[in-house]
């Protein structure tokens, strides 16, 4: 008995260890390869140069156009997902009957199971032509459609996590609000949403982090033209798209072009890592405050 206990404990420890080692390994590869890159291109140039043309004859290594593309699509996605997701969360929590909730919630989660490449083609072949009817200047590849569809993709993330946050607000607070003569709307926005704000913020940050890292939708629908712009109507390129583009191309391993992937990768990693830590910190800080 003792021996089997020990073995099981060892196995559990090992699986935890493997996860940690893999993470460390990934960070190690990112760091070591990008150090090679930064030996040839200075960090100052990387951050201040306004063009990103590593694959051209006239090479320029400014990450900002890719960061701008990433932020632009993310911003559009959140602008779509936050109002819709939060509205759904409030509706499910405050207005919908239990049966309605049982039907709607799983249906929303289906949105999360659609492969992102399908979303990408949806953006390219449905949303863009549709939007072009209203916006004549809209290019075939653009940040707008990709951002909107990415927003649709992350709606369930926001609605589901926010709904959890709102429903974990003590029932007594809702009763207090109703007891004071609040309408349902006043109860939702005046009491429930503020009380659940930490959970809602966390859901948004996780959604942002998901949008920043999203690859297929933007690769298919947003174009592959690094451009330092906030104009949503023209083709752009995100960090993730660039990595896909180079990984699939015929760039020789070990070359400077090859190393740009890792420089872009570590930039992306810094973003998502910071966002995830921010959400962790907010969660921790506010949980202490309410309990």
């Amino acid at each position: 008995m003792r021996v089997t206990e020990k073995i099981i404990e060892g196995l559990l420890w090992l699986s935890a260890l493997i996860t940690i080692l893999v993470t460390i390994g990934i960070i190690w590869v990112l760091l070591s390869e990008s150090i090679g890159f930064f030996k040839e291109v200075s960090i100052v140039e990387f951050l201040t140069e306004k063009e990103w043309t590593p694959l051209f004859a006239n090479k320029k290594f400014g990450i900002m156009p890719l960061v701008a593309g990433t932020l632009l699509t993310t911003l559009i996605a959140i602008a779509v997902a936050l109002p819709i997701g939060l509205t759904i969360a409030i509706y499910l929590n405050e207005y919908a009957h239990a049966r309605m909730k049982q039907i709607v919630k799983p249906m929303l989660e289906v949105l999360a199971t659609i492969p992102t490449v399908v979303y990408g083609f949806f953006a390219l072949t449905v949303v863009t032509p549709f939007l072009q009817q209203f916006i004549p200047g809209l290019a075939g590849f653009n940040a707008l459609s990709a951002g909107i569809v990415m927003g649709i993709m992350i709606i369930p993330m926001i609605s589901s996590l926010s709904e959890d946050a709102i429903s974990s607000v003590p029932r007594s607070l809702r009763e207090a609000a109703y007891g004071m003569g609040s309408t349902r709307l006043q109860t939702s926005f005046g009491v429930m949403v503020p009380a659940a704000s930490s959970g809602i913020i966390v859901s948004v940050i996780l959604a942002i982090s998901r949008a920043v890292g999203e690859t297929m939708i933007v690769a298919v629908a947003a174009g592959q033209q690094p451009r330092l712009t906030m104009n949503p109507l023209v083709p752009i390129e995100t960090i993730t798209t660039y990595i896909v583009q180079v990984s699939m191309g015929d760039v020789p391993q070990g070359s400077l072009e090859y190393k740009t992937i890792f420089a872009a990768g570590i930039t992306l990693f810094v973003f998502t890592f910071a966002l995830n830590n921010l959400s962790f910190w907010i969660k921790k800080k506010y949980q202490e405050k309410y309990d």
Binding site: L173, E175, A176, A177, Y178, G179, G181, A195
Partner: peptide
């Protein structure tokens, strides 16, 4: 019902102030 509750106030078993 919201008008009714302005006329008929309520105090609950467990104190439930808003987190404000």
């Amino acid at each position: 019902v919201d008008e009714l509750r302005k006329e008929v106030g309520m105090v609950f078993q467990k104190p439930n102030p808003f987190p404000k």
